[in-house]
C-alpha cells in the first residue's frame, strides 16, 4: 500500500511539474501560429490544397470545402490537427485553402 501511495505521489508530482513547465509554452505556441495565419497568400492556399489531399485523404474521403463555414472549418481543422497529428503550419495552410474554396 505504501508503495502504491508513493507511486501515486510520484506520478502526481511528475504531472504537476510537466504542466508547470509546459504552461508558458502553451501561451506562446498558439499565438505564434495565429500570427502567421493572418497573412494568407496564394502560395499558402496551394500548400493547403496539397496538405489537405495528403493528410485528410489518408483515412477518409475528402470533404467538400463547401460543407462548412469558415468558423466551422477553424474548429474542425483544429480538431483534426490533434487527431491526425498535423503540424500547426500545415493546419493553417489547410484552413486557408478550405476558406478560399468554400
Amino acid at each position: 500500500m505504501k508503495i502504491m501511495k508513493n507511486n501515486g505521489i510520484w506520478m502526481g508530482s511528475t504531472l504537476a511539474v510537466a504542466m508547470l513547465v509546459f504552461a508558458p509554452l502553451a501561451i506562446a505556441g498558439p499565438d505564434s501560429a495565429n500570427a502567421k495565419a493572418k497573412k494568407p497568400d496564394p502560395m499558402q492556399v496551394v500548400r493547403g490544397a496539397k496538405a489537405w489531399k495528403n493528410n485528410c485523404g489518408r483515412c477518409h474521403n475528402l470533404r467538400s470545402p463547401k460543407e462548412l463555414t469558415d468558423e466551422e472549418w477553424d474548429v474542425s481543422v483544429t480538431h483534426m490537427r490533434v487527431r491526425a497529428n498535423l503540424l500547426p503550419l500545415e493546419a493553417e495552410d489547410i484552413k486557408a485553402f478550405l476558406k478560399a474554396s468554400n
Partner: peptide
C-alpha cells in the same frame, strides 16, 4: 481537452 503546448506537442 486538447491543449497545444507548442508546434510539436499537444497535451490531451
Amino acid at each position: 481537452f486538447d491543449i497545444p503546448i507548442n508546434d510539436y506537442v499537444t497535451l490531451v
